[in-house]
Amino acid sequence: LRTVEMKKGPTDSLGISIAGGVGSPLGDVPIFIAMMHPTGVAAQTQKLRVGDRIVTICGTSTEGMTHTQAVNLLKNASGSIEMQV
């Protein structure tokens, strides 16, 4: 596991798309980074990659989380965001 910290302002975009989660079209698979926009906050860290499994978001485990719950957690996060992948 590695921990990645990002700074995100209220109008900034992380610039990632995620897939997976409980009840997702892919089945109940762990949440992972499906796409990254090169100008997004996540890409700027140069520490995240497409395919990385997201284990925690700001200390909250993604295990058993639906896709929608994970998306909302990421969208609503601002300031210092910590992810374990």
Rank of each mutant, 00 (worst) to 15 (best):
L48A: 04
G51N: 06
V29E: 08
P10H: 10
G23S: 07
N72G: 10
G27V: 00
M83F: 10
E63A: 12
R2L: 14
I57Y: 05
I33E: 04
G9V: 06
M6V: 09
G79I: 01
Q69V: 06
E5D: 10
L26G: 11
P38C: 07
R53T: 13
S17G: 13
A70R: 04
M6H: 04
G64W: 04
T3N: 07
K7N: 14
D28K: 06
I57E: 07
E63D: 14
D52G: 03
I33Y: 02
P10T: 10
S24Y: 08
M36L: 15
K8P: 11
G23I: 00
L74T: 01
T56L: 03
Q46P: 04
P10Y: 05
R2W: 09
I54Q: 05
H67T: 14
M6P: 00
I81T: 02
R2F: 11
Q69D: 14
T3I: 10
T11I: 10
K7I: 14
P30K: 00
S80F: 09
V85M: 00
T66N: 10
T56W: 00
G51V: 01
I57V: 08
T39C: 12
C58K: 08
P10E: 12
S13R: 14
G15T: 03
G20P: 00
K47M: 12
V41H: 06
G27T: 04
G64N: 13
V55W: 05
I33H: 02
G64D: 08
D52I: 01
T68I: 09
M36K: 04
S13V: 13
A77N: 11
D12G: 12
T60E: 14
G27A: 03
S78T: 14
A19D: 11
V22T: 09
V22C: 07
F32H: 14
T3S: 09
M83C: 07
P38G: 06
S24T: 06
T11S: 13
I54V: 11
V41M: 11
H67M: 12
S78P: 10
S61K: 12
G59F: 15
V85N: 02
T3A: 05
A43F: 10
V71W: 13
A43Q: 08
G59V: 01
N72Q: 13
Q69M: 11
V29Q: 11
L26A: 11
A34T: 12
F32A: 06
C58A: 11
I81M: 07
V55I: 12
G23Q: 05
Q46C: 10
D12N: 11
E5A: 11
G59P: 02
G64R: 09
V71M: 14
K8A: 12
T45W: 02
S17A: 12
G20E: 05
A43W: 09
G23E: 05
L14I: 12
G59A: 02
G27K: 06
F32C: 09
I16P: 00
V71H: 14
E63T: 12
G9S: 11
I57C: 08
L74V: 06
S17Y: 13
S61G: 06
S17I: 14
T68W: 11
S61P: 14
S61T: 10
P38N: 06
M35G: 15
P25A: 12
L14V: 08
P30R: 02
C58F: 07
